[in-house]
Amino acid sequence: MAAERGAVLRPGDWITYGDGDHQVVALAGTAVRLRSQSGAESVVLASHLMAAPDFSVTGTEPLPALEPSGLLTALPEAVPTAAKEWQYARRLAAEAGLDDTNETADARVLDGLLTRAEHGPDTRSAKVAARTRTARAAPAPAAAPETEGSTQPETGLQPPAAAEARRASP
């Protein structure tokens, strides 16, 4: 029987291999030191052992529960946020033609980002002022004229004048 996918071989495990049951005494690189029930010791390559048709792990302790390592979800909330800020700063540095592997350049970009975030959106620049003036000067979209026998379903969202005209008509 071949080893199960994802199986882990550790010292102390009991395996069936070749002539009987063996205990894994040690692992060194790709070598596995085994001790048979009769006390005879042998060293076998892990690849040879696990490719054997009669190999199986017969006795093992369950793996200890471990915290996920290397995942941002296991960290306090501020840590992933800071990591994302640094990633964004590195990307902006690269887009600006700066060396994104230079932490000093990244720190300057990040400092600029945080300064802008601290002061809020820039409402005084010429671009922002022009956009605001254009938006205020643009006419409001005209309401669609009411037609009798309309095939469109009624949504209930009508301008107040149209709703009042409907109530007044018989």
Rank of each mutant, 00 (worst) to 15 (best):
L71V: 08
A52G: 02
E41S: 02
R35P: 00
A89C: 09
P76K: 13
W86P: 00
A52S: 13
G59W: 12
Q37G: 03
A74K: 06
E61D: 13
V44L: 10
L49P: 00
A74R: 11
Y88H: 10
V43S: 12
K84Y: 03
S56H: 05
Q87F: 08
S36F: 05
A94L: 05
T60I: 04
H48E: 13
G29I: 07
A51R: 14
L72P: 00
E41F: 01
S69P: 01
Q87Y: 08
L45A: 09
A31S: 10
R35E: 14
L45T: 04
W86D: 00
P68S: 12
V43R: 14
T81L: 12
S42V: 06
S56V: 02
L45I: 01
T73I: 01
L63W: 11
P53D: 15
D54W: 03
T81Q: 14
G39H: 09
P80E: 08
L63C: 04
H48F: 11
R91F: 12
L75K: 12
L66F: 06
V44F: 07
V57L: 15
T60Y: 15
A46G: 01
Y88C: 01
G29R: 12
G70S: 04
R35C: 02
A51I: 01
A51N: 14
L92C: 06
F55D: 05
E67G: 02
L72G: 01
L45P: 02
L27I: 14
Y88V: 03
R90V: 02
D54P: 00
T81D: 08
L71Q: 10
E41Y: 07
A52H: 14
H48N: 11
A65F: 10
V79N: 03
P68I: 07
V44H: 04
S56D: 05
A46F: 12
W86N: 00
T81F: 07
P53F: 11
R91Y: 13
V32C: 07
E41R: 15
T30P: 03
G29Y: 13
R91N: 05
E85H: 05
P64R: 15
